[in-house]
Write a protein that binds this DNA or RNA. Structure first.
Lengths: 343, 343
DNA sequence: AATTATTTTTTACGCGCGTAAAGAATTTGC
DNA sequence: GCAAATTCTTTACGCGCGTAAAAAATAATT
C-alpha cells in the first residue's frame, strides 16, 4: 500500500492492468470473471485499497443492494438483539443493512419510510409500531418497496409476515399456571401499543374458557412505550385495590412484568412459586433481562433465532422473486415455556 | 397528486415552471431562492411528490450530508436512548443519520468504519468498543473522516471526546456510601471491555485513600458484553467466598449490579439500606432499568441529555470548521447521585 | 493445429445531478 | 424612473459508474 490514491475505476483499471468494464463486472460479481483476472484485480485492491463509489454505482440502479431494517423501539434490548441477527445475515448475503428505529413515534416511522424509499432498497424488514402506525403510509410504502413485516402484524400489508404465535405463548403459560397453582388473571395495558397484545388477551380468554376457569382481565392505564413504568404504576394500583381474584398474575409481556415485580417488591408482596410467597407472576417474551429480575421471571420465550432467520430468508426469497409474492403468507413460530422462580 | 411520475429534476423543473439549476439551488438551500420561486417549487413538490435522487446528489460530493453514529452494543438500552437523542438532533439540523452497532465485536466495528468511509459522511459520532477496539483501524479512520468520540475515550483519537466524568460518578457514590454506612468494596470485571471501568477503579482507590479507608477491589472473571450474567456469576462467587470486608458493594456499572442483585436474591441476601437488610449495593450509569430492580438501584446517573447534546454540537462545530480542530478537547459531564432503595 | 467457446478490450453512451459562465429578467434603492 | 443589485435562465460540462456492441484475445475442445 501507500501508492498514490486511486480516484476512480478508470484509474484502478489501468493500474491493475485490466479494462474498466471487466473491473466493473468483477465488482458486480467476482465469480463472473476468469480466476486469473480475479486474482490480478484482487491483488490490485489489496495494494491500492480501492473501492467503487457507492453513489455512482447506485445512481443508475432502480434497485440497490441495500436492505432496510425498521424496529419500533430500540431502547428495548429485544429489538437490539433482533437487529444484530438480521444485520449479520444481510451482510453475509452481500447486502448492506440500514437500521432504523421509530423510537415509539408514528411520525418517526413515517419519516423513516420516506427516507427508505429514497434509498431504493432491494427490500425492507419492517416491525411496525402497531396501533399507532399510520396504516395508509405503511400501505403506500409496501406498494412501492418489497417489504416483509415482522414481530407485529398489520393485516394485509407487506408481502409476508413472520412473527411469533401469540396463542402458543399464552396457552403454555396459562396451562402451566393453572396446573401448578391458582389460575391466573391477565395483566395488560388498556390501550396496548402492539397488536400482539390483543391476540394474547384473546388467547387468555380462550384458554381460560377451555379449562373451565373464570377469566379476569386487569387493564391498566398508560400509553407510550415505557412499559416498565406503566407496569409499575398499574401494579401498585391493582395491588392496593386487591383487584386480583387469585394469587397468580400473568402479564401480557415481560416489560410490564418487570414493572409489576418492582411494584410487588415496593408494596411488600413476595413473589415466587414456593410456599412462603404471596404471589406468582409470569409473562411472555423472554426479554433479555427477565433472567435477572428478582425473582427470575417465568415466561414464554420467542424463538428469536427462527423469527429473525426466517424473516430474512423470506425477504431474500422475495427479492429473488422480483419483489412480489402471489400470496401473502404469515409464518408464526411457537413459544417455549421458560420456568424460572417467579411462578 | 396522481399526476404522472416525475423521473428527474429536469422533468420536475419543467412542470414546476422553474429552470433546473434554480431547482437544484432550492434543494441545496431553500432559502437561497426568492420567496415566490420557493413557493412555486414547493407547490410542485406537493403536487408531484418529487424528491431528488440522493445517489446522484452525492456522487460528485466529496462530502455528503450523512452523519454516522456508531455505538458498541445496541442490546444495551442505554445506547438505544443515546441513539434516539442523537438521531433526532441530526435530522433537525438537516443531516441524515445512519446508525450502526458493533454488537460487541471488534471485527464488526472495523467493518462498520469501512462501510462508513464509503458513505463519505460529513462527520461521525463514534462510541468505540474500548479495550478490544483495533486502535490502528480507528486511528486511520479518524484521519480520513471528521470524528467525535463519545462515551468511551481512546487517547488522542478523533477530533474531540465527549463523555462523563468517571471521577464524579465514583466520588459521589463512595462519599455517600461511606457517610451513611460501612465503606464499600469495588465490584468489577477483571478485564473490563470499557476504559471507563479503569477510570472508575482508580477513582475508587483515590477516594478511599482520601477518606482514610482501606480499599478492596473484587475483580470477577468473564469477558464480552453480557455484563448481567458476568455480574451474576461473579456475585455468586464473592458471596459464597464472603470476599467482601463490609456490608457494602459498589459496582463499576449498573449492568453488573443487576447481575449481582440477582445473585444476592438467589443466595438469600437481602439488599437494601434500611435495618433488616444484609447488604447495600450501589452502582454507576443510571441504566434505564435500574429504577426497576428489586430493590431499586442506588446509582450515579449520566447526564444523558448533555452528553449526547454536546457530542452532536461538537460534531456540528467540527463540520463547520472543515473537519479539523486545532486542539482535541475532552468534555466531561458530571454525574448525579440517584438515591434509591438498594443503598 | 484448427475450430469453437469463453473472456476481455475497445469504444461509446447515458444516468441524475452539481455547477460554472454569460446573459436576461426581475427587484430594489434612491 | 433609472441604475444597481439580485435572481433566474440558458447552455454546457463533468462526476463515477453500468452497460451495450463489436472486435480482439485467450482458453477449451476435438
Amino acid at each position: 500500500m501507500g501508492e498514490r490514491k486511486i480516484r476512480n475505476m478508470e484509474e484502478f483499471a489501468s493500474v491493475s492492468g485490466i479494462s474498466r468494464p471487466t473491473v466493473s463486472k468483477y465488482f458486480n460479481d467476482p465469480s463472473s470473471v476468469r480466476a486469473s483476472t480475479r486474482a490480478r484485480i484482487e491483488a490490485a485492491i489489496e495494494q491500492y485499497d480501492y473501492r467503487p463509489n457507492i453513489y455512482a454505482i447506485n445512481q443508475n440502479r432502480q434497485l440497490t443492494k441495500n436492505i432496510g431494517i425498521v424496529v419500533p423501539y430500540l431502547a428495548d434490548p429485544f429489538f437490539g438483539e433482533i437487529a444484530r441477527v438480521i444485520e449479520q445475515r444481510c451482510i453475509e448475503a452481500g447486502f448492506s443493512p440500514s437500521l432504523f428505529s421509530s423510537h415509539g413515534e408514528a411520525e418517526q416511522e413515517r419519516d423513516i419510510l420516506d427516507t427508505l424509499r429514497s434509498l431504493k432498497p432491494a427490500g425492507v424488514l419492517l416491525a411496525p409500531l402497531g396501533r399507532t402506525s399510520d396504516k395508509s403510509v405503511i400501505e403506500a410504502f409496501c406498494r412501492d418497496v418489497p417489504t416483509v413485516l415482522f414481530d407485529s402484524n398489520i393485516e394485509g400489508m407487506g408481502e409476508a409476515f413472520v412473527g411469533s404465535d401469540n396463542y402458543s405463548f399464552v396457552s403454555q403459560t396459562v396451562e402451566y399456571l393453572s396446573r401448578t397453582g391458582e389460575p391466573p388473571c391477565f395483566f395488560e395495558m388498556k390501550h396496548p401499543a402492539n397488536p400482539n397484545a390483543n391476540k394474547r388477551r384473546r388467547a387468555y380468554l380462550d384458554m381460560m374458557e377451555r379449562l373451565g376457569l373464570e377469566p379476569l382481565v386487569l387493564q391498566i392505564e398508560g400509553t407510550g412505550w415505557e412499559f416498565e413504568e406503566i407496569g409499575r404504576k398499574g401494579g401498585h394500583d391493582i395491588l392496593s385495590r386487591k383487584a386480583m381474584r387469585t394469587n397468580t398474575i400473568l402479564c401480557s409481556n415481560d416489560r410490564l412484568a418487570i414493572g409489576l415485580l418492582s411494584a410487588c417488591y415496593e408494596a411488600g408482596y413476595k413473589v415466587g412459586r414456593d410456599a412462603g410467597h404471596d404471589l406468582r407472576v409470569a409473562s411472555h417474551d423472554d426479554h433479555p433481562f427477565s433472567r435477572y429480575t428478582c425473582p427470575s421471571l417465568t415466561t414464554a420465550a420467542h424463538d428469536y433465532a427462527n423469527v429473525s432467520g426466517h424473516a430474512v430468508d423470506t425477504l431474500f426469497h422475495l427479492i429473488e422473486s422480483g419483489g412480489r409474492f402471489s400470496t401473502r403468507d404469515e409464518t408464526l413460530f411457537s413459544a417455549r415455556l421458560i420456568m424460572r422462580d417467579s411462578a
